[in-house]
Amino acid sequence: MAHRAEDAGRAGEQASSIPPSGRDLTALLRVVPLFAELAAPDLDRLLVGATPVRLDTGAAAFHQGDEARTFQVLLSGRLKLSQVTSDGQQVTLRYITPGEMFGGIAALNGKPYPASALAVAPSLAVRWDREVFQRHVQEQAQLSWKLIQELSRRFSEAQSRFREMATERVERRIARTLLRLAHQTGRRVEEGVLIDLPLSRQDLAEMVGTTQFTVSRVLSDWERRGLVEAGRGRVLLRHPHQLVLVAEDLAGSED
């Protein structure tokens, strides 16, 4: 599944600045996990109402509070999904990587977007009007089944994060967050696994649900121990296995 998503990313990056259409768009949609198992005629039918959208770094796919009119899938690039709470605190909910749907849950419910989606790299998305996508789902059983699977995956992810917040020490939460990001966007490099995202300590603090001060303290400690290298908006996991031990609380007495 992840390989397909990476393929989608590469395919999108190869495209020129002209948004793809027709056959090109079908090829891009084919590698989206949500659509991967659709029969060719069903995939072709999905093109009805599909509009490619290019987003420069910093551009918003949608803003928190806007009426959710579209269902969207990211084909290449990276988006940051973040929410401003009622007391003004910003929270990074998750990063969207190629092949993932976004804004879909609000669109399915007919609710305003609960968060904003900003491109953190040049990105290509495809969107359908809510009503059009609803029709596709109603007409295609396989698509609706895949959508249910994706929603349940997101739901269990949310439950895991709730459990982490409620019960786990901050070191474990930071380790888990880094591992989750590495799993989602990581790249094997000579020195370890590089999280391929412009990720500041503030971003990480928002994702973990702690302060930037705490993130800095923990990362500095891990840097001293040679586990990670965190600087200039990038995080390198030098010893991913050691982080797994921290995340799973298997690290023994040295912690």
Binding site: L179, R180, G186, V193, H241, V244
Partner: peptide, 20 residues
């Protein structure tokens, strides 16, 4: 070993696991 369901399983090779 913690490899079953591990988020790093896609990056670590047989050699890495043995080393770990």
């Amino acid at each position: 070993m913690a490899c079953v369901g591990c988020p790093m399983a896609r990056f670590d090779s047989v050699r890495d696991v043995a080393q770990n």
